[in-house]
């Protein structure tokens, strides 16, 4: 292996690691705030990428209808949750917060198709279509079972993953798609060829991480989410609404996952079920961080990206096996060093 190959592999590893890192952060946010291991995050990766691909192809993606339907479901669930004390303003808020995003998504999709739109606008439309599904699913599925154990919530997540993956096959078919790159330029740095898209992926990842750090470190809402993650009972006693935290956590995670899918769909072909595999690697990274530590999860993601790219070059048949084998020493080390870390959310 000469230097140029090494550099290409490292570059590949870092770019993929950035995507895994984003997913790992999203998984940690959702788990610490709501105790939900959010398996269907992979479907959001696929949905984001394939929705964009369909918009590019000039077709109406099926995800628009799904978002609208889930919006209705979420509105109904919110009204039901608030049934004890319904005021006209409360009813209006329940309906608006659920129906407005769904309406906006449909409008954007329609506008993109009717008038044709530049790529950034289509990306925005794809995000607006896919992201609201996450809080809607929280309202309709997770919130009514908020008191359940971590295991029950995980089983619900697996069921939801299977359902969404089936819907993905219906919406997008079995063929894979790629999307247009935002920057086709190639940058030459010494022996290294850097694609514009990989620079965009890195830049977006870094900006997102900085934005998340600002949100969690310097806004009251972000601190409220952290407080809920640190001490659930304490958060209840100061009346931080669990539903508000759930909505914010799921919106962040859904948006991050959809954006991750959109970003890599310009570098590789995505199928309706590819997202799950990508999310699994994000999950391994999150586990390296004990499903609690953001920096460790990000480092883990980088490690996974690098292992994957070197494995793909040296032993491509074992690429996935090698990546997922990382989890075994990590779990051994974690259970040996800090046996309680993973159980914190269970009390």
């Amino acid at each position: 292996m000469d230097l140029s190959i090494l550099l290409v592999l490292v570059q590949d590893g870092i770019v993929n690691g950035a995507i895994y890192g984003l997913l790992a952060l999203a998984l940690v946010i959702v788990f610490t705030v709501t105790r939900i291991i959010w398996v269907p995050i992979g479907e959001f990766v696929s949905f984001g990428a394939l929705t964009l691909a369909m918009l590019e192809a000039g077709q109406m993606p099926g995800t628009v209808a799904l978002t609208a339907l889930l919006g209705l479901g979420a509105a109904a669930a919110r009204l039901w949750a608030a049934r004890a004390r319904l005021t006209p303003a409360g009813v209006a808020r329940c309906l608006l917060t659920a129906l407005l995003p769904a309406g906006l998504a449909a409008l954007l999709a329609w506008a993109c198709l009717a008038w044709g739109a530049p790529q950034p606008l289509r990306i925005l439309a794809a995000l607006a279509i896919v992201t609201p599904m996450a809080p809607f699913l929280y309202d309709t599925l997770y919130r009514p079972m908020a008191g359940a154990s971590v295991l029950v919530l995980l089983i619900a997540s697996v069921a939801l993953h299977l359902a969404l993956q089936g819907l993905g096959l219906i919406f997008f078919g079995a063929e894979g798609s790629r999307t247009e790159s935002l920057a086709d330029s190639l940058l030459e740095i010494g022996p290294l060829l850097v694609t514009g898209q990989s620079l965009i992926i890195l830049a977006v990842t870094l900006v997102l991480i900085a934005a998340l750090a600002l949100f969690f470190g310097h806004t009251l809402l972000g601190k409220a989410l952290r407080a809920t993650a640190v001490n659930r009972l304490g958060a209840r006693l100061v009346a931080i609404p669990p539903a508000l935290c759930g909505h914010v956590a799921f919106t962040l995670a859904g948006g991050i996952a959809a954006l991750g899918g959109i970003l890599i769909s310009a570098t590789t072909t995505l199928y309706y079920d590819t997202g799950f595999l990508i999310a699994l690697k994000g999950f391994v990274a999150a586990v390296i961080g004990g499903l609690a530590s953001y920096p460790l999860a990000a480092l883990g993601a980088l490690l996974i990206g690098l292992v994957e790219s070197f494995a793909a070059f040296n032993a491509s048949a074992f690429k996935e096996v090698l990546v997922f084998m990382i989890i075994i020493p990590v779990l051994l080390w974690r259970s040996w060093r800090m046996p309680a870390a993973l159980d914190e959310g269970e009390e």
Binding site: L220, K223, A224, R226, A227, V230, N231, L233, G234, A235, L237, V238, A239, I240
Partner: peptide
């Protein structure tokens, strides 16, 4: 039931979350 990994001031401010 404090928010142990957060600052004293953040703990206090969160006590007022309802009146934010």
């Amino acid at each position: 039931e404090l928010f142990s990994s957060m600052s004293v001031e953040d703990n206090l401010r969160l006590g007022r979350f309802r009146l934010r």
